[in-house]
């Protein structure tokens, strides 16, 4: 079992090396997607199907959105200004980080034996107290529902922020109407059924 975890982790690491160092941006995006897929399986093996199913959908959305952000097919990475000093210094910093992290991890409980002081209480009481047999959802939606409100707010904020950033223009000129017609078609133009779509697409093609 442990061997599987190591292999999958190495799979993730190789995938992310490709994602970081690939010349073609589309290759990077796709390898990031591959890393997400492997992580989903790893979550499944680690006994976290909730996370696995969420990771699946998130990975697909990440893939689609990132594909949108690469604007053309032959979009290669930038190599002309390679700042050797910055890369070297950051590599040294990360090396130090890894060494200290390795030393610090000695203080953690061994892998496979978590402390679970609060976790055991959740496992014992959750089903009776919240009525949810999925303990994770019981915690997420009832014991820590306030966190979930925060999480929903984070999505709300990010989407609102994306809308704000994608506005056509920020500042009004004096005495200028800012009712700009949007690129999305008018409500009346939108077809409401499949027949209209197909007739109109035939006429356009």
């Amino acid at each position: 079992m442990l061997f599987l975890f190591y292999t999958l982790l190495i799979f993730c690491i190789i995938g992310s090396i490709i994602a970081i160092e690939a010349r073609n941006i589309l290759a990077s995006v796709i390898s990031a997607g591959v890393v997400g897929m492997a992580l989903s399986i790893l979550f499944l093996f680690l006994g976290a199907p909730d996370i696995a199913i969420t990771q699946v959908v998130v990975e697909i959305i990440v893939l689609i959105v990132l594909i949108r952000s690469t604007v053309s097919l032959d979009n290669t990475a930038i190599t002309k200004h390679r700042d050797t000093f910055a890369i070297l210094s950051s590599l040294i910093f990360f090396g130090l980080f890894l060494v200290f992290a390795f030393m610090a991890f000695q203080g953690l409980p061994t892998f496979g034996e978590p402390i679970m002081s609060v976790g055991r209480q959740y496992l014992e009481n959750s089903v009776n107290q919240t009525g949810a047999s999925n303990v994770v959802m019981g915690i997420l939606m009832d014991y820590r529902a306030y966190d979930t409100l925060g999480e929903a707010t984070v999505i709300f904020t990010a989407i609102l922020g994306a809308f704000v950033v994608l506005r056509a223009k920020g500042k009004k000129k004096k005495e200028e109407s800012d009712k700009i017609r949007v690129g999305i078609p008018e409500k009346e133009d939108l077809p409401m059924s499949l027949d209209q779509i197909e007739t109109s697409s035939d006429s356009t093609s």
Binding site: R68, S69, L166, R167, A168, I180, G183, I184
Partner: peptide, 15 residues
């Protein structure tokens, strides 16, 4: 995100 870039003139803002 998808429509953006081709209809730069004005998007998503029922301002």
């Amino acid at each position: 995100l998808t429509i953006f870039g081709r209809f730069v003139s004005g998007l998503i803002s029922e301002d």
